[in-house]
Design a protein around this nucleic acid. Structure first.
Length: 423
RNA sequence: GGAGAAAUGGCAGAGCGGUUGAAUGCACUGGUCUUGAAAACCAGCAUACCGAGAGGUAUCGGGGGUUCGAAUCCCUCUUUCUCCGCCA
């Protein structure tokens, strides 16, 4: 959520910045601005009346105290009119607040200077490409066939027990999955992140805090009886740890990591995009979340990008980094780098990580602040990134490391496994 | 799931329906004193919003109500504790 003070101060610049998303928000911002003005004047008016009636009430108190009951009765009658006015002003103020809030929820974050304008993924910029295409001697199988051939993942069983998009990992497939999780967590720990195992369900307030609600309600599984949501990413519980928090001073740099399954309804997805491990309703991910001083958030973003690069390089996967264009940017993000690995058998790029800086957009909703050197409360910056999402990494590993005899295992995972190849 | 008790500032803990945004203690910050420290003493110390400022308004777990006036009374939800039941 954009800060109302920013809209007051630099509305036109914000409108201009938002155009990079390919949508014109001048309507919303102008409306907010107008509503905000009348809100302020109504509020002042209301508070003046409140102040008056508070005074009269105190007078009555004094009169009652000194036994002048009749004078008190007269004063009581005086307040009736004030009450009426106060109530109607209050109604107006509340209505204006609700309207402003509603409009604010509609406006996404403003992209940073270096984010390219653009409408779709076509306009993303590839800023780096690392590694070589794998050459196969024979036919290269897609991961779903490899998974079947070596009995690593059972998709049909998942359909039977739960539904499409909920696979079973089995035997060496399950172990490989667990090894990857441990590897990612170990790397995060080395980089100074504190590990958490968060709840897999969150309440409504948390969903609103990180921006999944109200806009993306349909993306989450909702346990209506208890009004809880299954998390679509551990970003939600991890970031919400710091909801309604004021950090005591400027010296903070909060680095959290967590492994969790993630649940996404993915309504409307279809075709080859959902084949095999490409898109699941439940998938594992190790997430990085950071809360930073505004002066430090750019550096933190860079560190996170380098962290993910390191992981992909250690796994020996060909990858590229994209800077998303305005149109492809998530609602809450100011800048996002996507990481894609090349899946040699499917001959396509698969997104395995997304690293984003939200600046104050999330912190504003979360009420996550710190005390600056002038003892004023100021919003923190939040960041997060996947490091990494498991299924597509697993898919790429299976496909890229396949040989006619079996599947090799990247050396870096050997410490986490009791086998060195899959046959 | 049933029965009972409770929820106040960073913590502890007062608070007859009427200058209570809230006593007091601890913690914290600044100052005096001291060669330095401790102690003692003095002062300061919640958040948000409106306002150039003076100041104003709101907030005592959340929401609603009674009243001229609510931390204080009523309803409701949530959470915590105790007891019972069930259970990995």
């Amino acid at each position: 959520m954009l800060e109302i003070t920013r809209i007051r101060a630099e509305k036109d610049a914000l409108i201009e910045g938002l155009k990079k998303r390919g949508v014109d928000f001048s309507n919303q911002l102008n409306q907010i601005s107008t509503l905000d003005e009348s809100w302020r004047s109504k509020k002042t008016e209301m508070e003046t009346i409140q102040s008056e009636s508070n005074k009269v009430s105190k007078e009555i108190g004094k009169l009652m105290g000194s036994g002048k009951k009749e004078e008190a009765e007269v004063a009581k009658k005086q307040t009736a009119e004030l009450k009426k006015k106060e109530q109607s002003l209050k109604d107006e103020v509340i209505e204006l607040e609700a309207k402003i809030q509603e409009l604010l929820y509609e406006v996404p974050n403003v992209p940073l200077e270096i984010v390219p304008a653009g409408k779709s993924e076509e306009d993303n910029i590839t800023i780096e490409e690392v590694g070589q295409k794998v050459k196969f001697s024979g036919e290269a199988l897609p991961h779903w066939e490899l998974a079947k051939k070596y009995d690593l993942i059972d998709f049909e069983l998942g359909v039977k027990v739960t539904g499409a998009g909920f696979p079973f990992y089995k035997g060496k497939g399950a172990k490989l999955q667990r090894a990857l999780i441990n590897f990612f967590l170990a790397e995060a720990e080395k980089a100074g992140y504190t590990e958490y195992i968060p709840p897999l369900m969150v309440n409504e307030a948390s969903g609103i805090g990180t921006g999944q609600l109200p806009d993306k309600e349909g993306q989450m599984y909702h346990a209506t009886k208890d009004n809880l949501y299954l998390i679509p990413t551990s970003e939600v519980p991890l970031t919400n740890i710091y909801r309604d928090t004021i950090l005591p001073d400027e010296n903070f740099s909060i680095k959290m990591t967590g492994y969790t399954p993630n649940f996404r309804r993915e309504a409307g997805s279809y075709g080859s995009d959902v084949r095999g491990l490409n898109r699941l309703h439940q998938f594992d991910k190790v997430e990085l979340v950071r809360i930073e001083h505004p002066n430090n958030s750019q550096k933190a973003l860079e560190e996170m990008v380098n962290h993910v690069k390191g992981l992909l390089e250690k796994l020996g996967l060909q990858y590229r980094i994209l800077r998303l264009c305005g149109g492809d940017l998530g609602f809450t993000s100011a800048i996002t780098y996507d990481f894609e690995v090349y899946s040699a058998a499917q001959e396509k790029w698969l997104e395995v990580s997304s690293v984003s800086l939200f600046e104050t957009f999330q912190a504003n909703r979360l009420k996550l602040r710190f005390k600056n050197d002038k003892k004023k409360t100021q919003l923190c910056h939040t960041l997060n990134g996947s490091a990494l999402a498991l299924p597509r990494i697993l898919a790429a590993l299976l496909e890229n490391y396949q040989t006619p005899e079996g599947i090799e295992i990247p050396e870096v995972l050997e410490d986490y496994l009791n086998f060195k190849e899959i046959k």
